[in-house]
Computed example of a mutant assay.
Amino acid sequence: MSLVLPKHNRYAYSPIYERPDYSWPQEKRLAFCVVTNLEVYAYRKGTGWDPAKIGEPQNQRNYAWRDYGNRVGVWRLFDLFDELKLPAAHNINSLLYDDHPQIFERIRARGDELVAHGRTNAERQGDLWELDEARLIDDVTSAIRAKEGAAPKGWMGPAASESNTTPDLLKEAGYKYVMDWPADDQPFWLKTRSGPLLSVPYPAELNDSASIIHRRNTADQFADMIVAQFDEMIEQCESQPLVMTISLHAFVIGQPFRMPALRRALRHCVEHPRRDRVWWTTPGAVADHCYALPAGIVPGEGPSL
């Protein structure tokens, strides 16, 4: 008997070189998205990264380190995005609304996108019963709708955690896209029990938390990753439309000694000689464009127009 691996039925295999060609708005070829992660954590409870020791119990030190992102780091990032005239999207825990209103004032003033990112990164939805997960998604969606006047288009699970029914629940809650599946450099359609849901590229690699906290890379090494990725994709996109998303955590890259490296990398991108190929955008705008394309262009079984 041959080995049969556990599988999913969310998408079929699709080699990138076999796909139809298309372009982003104004015939751009590379969609460039900067996404921050703005998170709140439980004090001395639940889950959360630690800068000093892997697996360290939750305590006041690692709580305060993460809170630095909301008190200081995010404001440095806002200023940098303003300096470089970059749009951004923000993966937000909905409980951030409780005590951090100034963050949302700045996001609204910039016209940035809000992406639902769970209630708090102190919990994971991957092991929840379906009814409990549906309640979590509704809590997040309702909170954002009440504060912003509209529900978010996109979802990014805390730590990209999903249960077997997460895409189904997101589709049924009205979401247009999800960023939990880092399987591609182009958007593709996920199957759900209620119809297609778009997967928009989000990086497991080009992610400051994964790179700096888990792999112990320096800020300069992370910045070099951004530069190398951009330089390669700005050439690859001549033959294929691509998405380059950078994941930033305000409590990681927002530390002062790391900011110069990030500034160098982002300036390299926005000042690149071939920057005319780039669409400086957000995941939600990428999703809107894909929904407007004819059926059969984006990989997978999409909606009928």
Rank of each mutant, 00 (worst) to 15 (best):
D168V: 06
M179N: 06
Y175T: 05
A183D: 15
A159H: 07
G157T: 00
A150L: 12
W181Q: 09
Y177T: 08
P152T: 06
P182C: 09
K153I: 06
E162Q: 08
Y177V: 04
L169G: 04
L170S: 06
S163W: 00
G174F: 10
P158W: 05
N164K: 11
G154E: 14
Y175Q: 05
N164P: 07
G154R: 06
D180V: 00
P167L: 10
D168L: 07
S161C: 06
W181F: 15
S161T: 05
E172H: 06
K176I: 08
A173G: 10
L170H: 07
P152Q: 06
G154W: 07
M156F: 12
G154P: 13
A173L: 08
K153R: 12
T166V: 01
G154T: 02
P158A: 03
N164Q: 12
S161H: 05
T165M: 09
P167W: 03
A173E: 10
S163V: 02
A159N: 09
G174R: 07
S161Q: 07
G174D: 14
L170G: 07
D168C: 12
E172R: 13
A151T: 06
G157R: 00
G174A: 13
P182R: 03
A150S: 15
N164S: 12
A160M: 15
T166N: 04
G157L: 02
W155A: 01
D180L: 09
L170I: 09
M179Y: 05
Y177I: 04
S163Y: 00
M179I: 03
A151D: 12
A183H: 15
A150V: 12
T165L: 08
A151P: 12
E162S: 04
T165I: 06
E172D: 13
K171W: 09
E162V: 05
W155M: 03
E172W: 02
P182W: 10
Y175C: 03
K176S: 14
